[in-house]
Design a binder for these strands. Sequence first.
RNA 1: UGGGGUGUCGUCAAGUGGCAAGACACGGGGUUUUGGACCCCGCAUUCGGAGGUUCGAAUCCUCCCACCCCAGCCA
Length: 565
Amino acid sequence: MAKPPSTDFIRVIITKDLQANKHDGRVATRFPPEPNGYLHIGHAKSICLNFGIAADYKGTCNLRFDDTDPSGESIEYVDAIKADVRWLGFEWNDREFFASDYFEQLYQYALQLIKAGKAYICSLSPDEIREHRGTLTEPGKESPYRNRSAEESLDLFERMRAGEFADGAHVLRARIDMASPNLNMRDPVLYRIKKVPHYRTGDQWCIYPMYDFAHCLSDAIEGITHSLCTLEFENNRPLYDWILDELKTPCHPQQIEFARLNLSYTVMSKRMLADLVGKGLVSGWSDPRMPTLAGMRRRGYTPDAIRTFCERIGVAKNDSVVDMELLEHCVRDDLNEHAPRAMAVLRPLKVIIDNYPADKTEEFDAPNHPQDPGMGSRKIPFSRELYIEQDDFLEDAPKKFFRLAPGREVRLRYAYFIKCEQVIKDKKTGEITEIHCTYDPETRGGYAPDNRKVKATIHWVSAPLCQEAEVRLYDRLFTVANPGAEAEKAGTEFTAFVNPDSLETLTSCKVEPGLAQAAPGSRYQFERLGYFCVDPVDSSEDSLLFNRIVTLRDTWAKMQEKDGK
RNA sequence: UGGGGUGUCGUCAAGUGGCAAGACACGGGGUUUUGGACCCCGCAUUCGGAGGUUCGAAUCCUCCCACCCCAGCCA
C-alpha cells in the first residue's frame, strides 16, 4: 500500500541540498536523450529516476534532446522517444527542449571563453591532436596553436562558422592542462566543423558543439539543479564544472553519476542492439524480444510493471547486472492482478467424450478473474469434442504427473470431471491422434457431489466452437546471462549467443471463441500457460495473433528440469 | 607503472561506530476448480583480504587484492 519512500543516495543528496537551501528550494532535473536511436529499459531507469525525483520534490523534469551531432540524428527518433516516454507514463508538458535551440547562445559562450583566453582555435589534424594528447601514463604535449592570440582565434572561429574551412581543418579547444591526469582536461575539443545538415537547424550551422560543452551549458540555461548521468561521465565532471566556472553562468547544476542498468540474458548497448537489427537476428527495433521500450510494448509488458521494476532495482553506483527474473516478476505481478483469464490450447490434442451426446452443446460460466468478481464472467461453450493441451496427457505417466492418463480422472476447468478410457494412435507413426474419455454428468461445474478429489484441473476448448489463432512464444534473447562478457571471454561475436529458440511460432492454436473479438494490444492470462497480448501490428480481423508476454511460474516444469539433470 | 570509481546473501540493495533491512531467486509447509495466485517459515555469526584503533567496526586508520571507466573532431 504505502510504499516506503525511496532513499537512494541521490535523493539523500537532494534532501540535504534542500535543507541547506542550495538552489533556493528548487529541484529541476532533465532526461537528455540523443535522438539517434531507440530508448531501452536502461533509459527507463533514467526516466523514472529523473521524472520520479521531480515528482517527489515537487520539482520539474525537462525532456531535452541532446542533438549536437547531426550525423545520425533525426526527427523520427525524436518522435519515437517522445512516444516511449509518454507510454512509460511521464508528462513533460511544455518543458520540451533541444540543445540545438541553444546553438547561438552556446556560440556566444564560446566567444566569451576565447576572449578570456580560456579557449583557442587549434589547427592540428585529428591524428595530431591524438598524438599530442599523450597516454594514460604520459602527459600530453601542448598544441603549437595553444598561444594563438584571442583575436586570431576569434577571427578563425567566426570564419569556421561562416563555412570557410573544410571539416577537420580547425577545432575550438579549451585551454586547460595538457599534463592533467584526467585526459578530459587535456585541452578538450569544444567545437568541430561538420558540414552536415542538422535535422532541425538545417544548414544554418556547420560547426557543432561537443557534448562536454553543450551539456553543462544546456543544463545551466534551463536552470537544472541536479544533472543525473551514468558512471562513465564521472571523468567528465571536472570539465563540466570547469566550463560553468569559467563562464560564470548564473546557475551551476550539480552532476551526479549513477550506475546504468544491465539486465541478464540481454544486451543494452546501442551498438549491439543495432547489430541484432542489422544482421536480421530480430525483426527490428520493436521486435518483442528486444529490451527496447518499443519492443517491450509490443511484447505486451505494461508501463506499470516497468516502472515498478525501475523502483525495485534501486539506484546506486555499483556496476551490476539485474536478474531478468525480477523484471518478469514485476510483469507477472501486474498482469496477475489486471489481466482477465481465458482458456487457450496451444498444442491441441483432440478429446472425444464418448458418453456426451454428439448434438449437444452447453455453456459454462467462467469468472474472468478468480480473485476479483468485479471483473465479471463470460460463457464458454462445451461439446462432445474438445481440445486439450498435448502436455496435459501422458500415456505412461509417472506418479508425480497429476494430469490426464489412461484410467485417470481430471477436472476440465469450470466443466466436468473426465476420465481417459482409450488412446487412439496413428498406425504408421504411433503418434497419439485422439483420446477417448467419459464424463461424469454429476460433476457439472467441476464439483463432485461425492466429494471425490482429482489431482489436476486442466484447460480445454470446444473443438467445433473455438477460434483459431497464431501464437508467438518468446523466450530470452540470449543463452547466456552476460553475452557481452561471455563473447569477450570466448573471443567470439556476442551474436553467437543468440538463443535459437527465442521465438517459436505456433500456428494452429485453439482459443475460446470470445477471444475472436479481442482488441489489439489487450492482454490475457491463458490459464496455466502465461500472459499473452494481441499483437498490435500483425493481428487482424481474419487472423488472430498473440504474443506471449511471460509464462506463469511453472513448478512442474521446474521439477522436470531438476529430474533431467 | 596515471587518474577517476566500485567491492555487503546466487542477483539487486539498505546500513554512515552499538551488534547485518527489504526484494527477486532458492528450499520447506499450508491453501487452492490455474502444479498459477495467496499465506506461513527458512535462507550472510558476517560485510573483497590482512593488520590496526576502540568496551564495541560493514561503518574509522593502514596496506593489499579484484573489477569498471577515461587516450572520438560520439554522447
